[in-house]
Design a protein around this nucleic acid. Sequence first.
DNA 1: CCTATTACGTTCACTCACTAAACGAAAGCC
DNA 2: GGCTTTCGTTTAGTGAGTGAACGTAATAGG
Lengths: 400, 400
Amino acid sequence: MPTPAPPLAVATAGLGDVLQLFRTEPTLTRADVMALTGLSRSTVNQRLDALLAAALVVPSGEGAPTGGRPASRFAFNSERGVLLVADIGATGMRTALCNLRGEVRQEHEQSLDVATGPDIVLSVVDEAFRALLAEAGRAAADVHGIGIDVPGPVDFDRGQVVSPPIMSGWDRYDIRAWFAGRYDCPVLVDKDVNAMAVGEHRSLYPEVRQLLMVKVGTGVGAGMIIDGEVFRGADGAAGDIGHIQLTVDDTDNEPVCRCGNTGCVEAYAGGWALVRDLNAAGRPVSTVQEALALIRTGDVTAVRLARRAGRILGHAIADAVSLLNPGVVVIGGQLAQIEEQLFAGIREMVYRRSLPLATRKLSIAATALGPRSGLVGMALLLADSIFAAHRVEGLIARRD
Amino acid sequence: MPTPAPPLAVATAGLGDVLQLFRTEPTLTRADVMALTGLSRSTVNQRLDALLAAALVVPSGEGAPTGGRPASRFAFNSERGVLLVADIGATGMRTALCNLRGEVRQEHEQSLDVATGPDIVLSVVDEAFRALLAEAGRAAADVHGIGIDVPGPVDFDRGQVVSPPIMSGWDRYDIRAWFAGRYDCPVLVDKDVNAMAVGEHRSLYPEVRQLLMVKVGTGVGAGMIIDGEVFRGADGAAGDIGHIQLTVDDTDNEPVCRCGNTGCVEAYAGGWALVRDLNAAGRPVSTVQEALALIRTGDVTAVRLARRAGRILGHAIADAVSLLNPGVVVIGGQLAQIEEQLFAGIREMVYRRSLPLATRKLSIAATALGPRSGLVGMALLLADSIFAAHRVEGLIARRD
DNA sequence: CCTATTACGTTCACTCACTAAACGAAAGCC
DNA sequence: GGCTTTCGTTTAGTGAGTGAACGTAATAGG
């Protein structure tokens, strides 16, 4: 039996609640479900019958011998269908076919310029989806959900990109509608940093209530988990840590940011700023990856710039920690690869500047999922959305 | 009938849910409750009988004539008992006796140095409470709840002050336990800015999901409403906007802050910093109130400093807006009195620096409740806590 | 003032979900 | 091989909520 037994709330557990148990635990016996829900044996069987009939749950062998008749075990039917997920970045994308637990089964990576616009990009995404389906021997009808995350603000409820700074041609583009014509399933669209936050949260810190995920790539952005849920703000614009303003330069000539302002975090510590500064220092690099490679060689100027970026990020993260008081801060994005050079500065600034009360239990960690956090997170977000307790009844009804 | 009829969730509405309706609407008929809950006439009567028996709801005259028999109306029994609330500031406090809706009935204001420590301060609070009770002709047994808000971080669940920067002698002091020995009712303790946020939110922007309340008094702090609820962070330390670091001075000599760091928002724009800077500029003032008075006279130096404070606050609020993307920002605290001089700078910076997506619908307003927002908010928070849907059954059981 | 109208408030049998207890079945243990 | 243990199923029973019928109270209109 998995956990002691926290009987559910006053209201009796419905089909959805029981399914949640199976999504949480690998396998359960009827007795487990009784203990976890507080429902009677008869009712548990009734629930199970419905879930089995809908193939949402399947038998999964027998339990360990206990001296008496062994209990039959059941498991969430993660192979009942598949999920398709695409993590679209500025210059590349990852696509994956996942099972219904949101676990990645097949994954594909390719370069792709998001600025070629939604028509081309989504066609490429769909090609990748079709290839993944073919490879897995699945039909489009097996697709239970599609999740797309993009490097820009999203109106989550509508599934549209809104006012993106770098995705030219995507403003108000209705991604959901595009897929709705091709697949008959829910389509979720979210900002990449939100998906990344979910990925790290669910995979490594499920018990943490507040998590801040900072992505330091070409630009700088953040996704937030608040009370265990993605926090998007009033317009889906929350987490814009990259354009917090700092003026910690010794001189007064603040760097100009891509956003038009000056002195933004991103204009000091974003990948593009690093490339700019390395070039200015006579180190010809043209991409963020080249800049990172140079830093790894130990080039003094490059390392100095990386450390400065760490301190700048630390300032911004300290501000965010002061405001949000999260339990964990996770750093991801390309620059998280130079952890050693970056983290000292980040930790230094956060612990120096934020209230001791807020930093006492705070942990600051590098991404554990690396470049896959967005993909993994989007899949989990999608699975959660599809099998949300209040939707389960509908799922079953639809099958009939 | 108040609103069209949004039938409640799948689960049938319990006693608590019905009581919530009465707390929301001034009066309701049985037909209203039927429409609002979707419950049948029989069940509504059953619920009403229980609430009437417990005196949580009382008859409230008759409805408007409709051509037939007029329906009898019922209302939340806000006079069944009283709430006692104390808003403790650094140098003064407000106490109030409220009805069970959290509406202030009698209010008292007095000066009080919070640094004299919890024993003295709480004794003074209790004296004020006893006086309010006597004045209202109420006994201690009529007190249904006590709410205390203080100018420092609070462990909300435990009712204790934790690591307060300015409340010397209060660290880990168990405020709840102090009152538990004197009154037999729930005791809520919260940070003042949280109470202020609730006050403004519930009184003026109940439909807004995200609200940022910035208090600019002697120090600078913020309370946040996220998804309609107070957001406290992992350690109750969220909202520490006063110690976000800024270095927007033309020179490099950052002012030293009370917190030990340099360049904090508060060290530029807090009331204490304003007093310091006015003195340095040869304008002898000793209190924030005197500083504000000088600004109102139009003294050029004072006005210049006030405007600078506005811009500094604007920077910090822009950062907070970028991170949280709230629907409304409310400015309170003593410095909100010089709205004219302060707000131009605040608005200028927020609209210049935050994403258009985040500021498009953003409204930035001065407190409407003024110095009473903490008191009013604490009362509402307390009323909500006591009559939370899941506690109503317990309330009734306790009466028996 | 009386009657028709209108909607209220109450009662009662019925439904439905869940429960509790009894029963038969299957597997390990001696 | 019988005994014990636990499982899985079946049964009747309970309680909350429903819906329709009924009696009632107040207004509108003649």
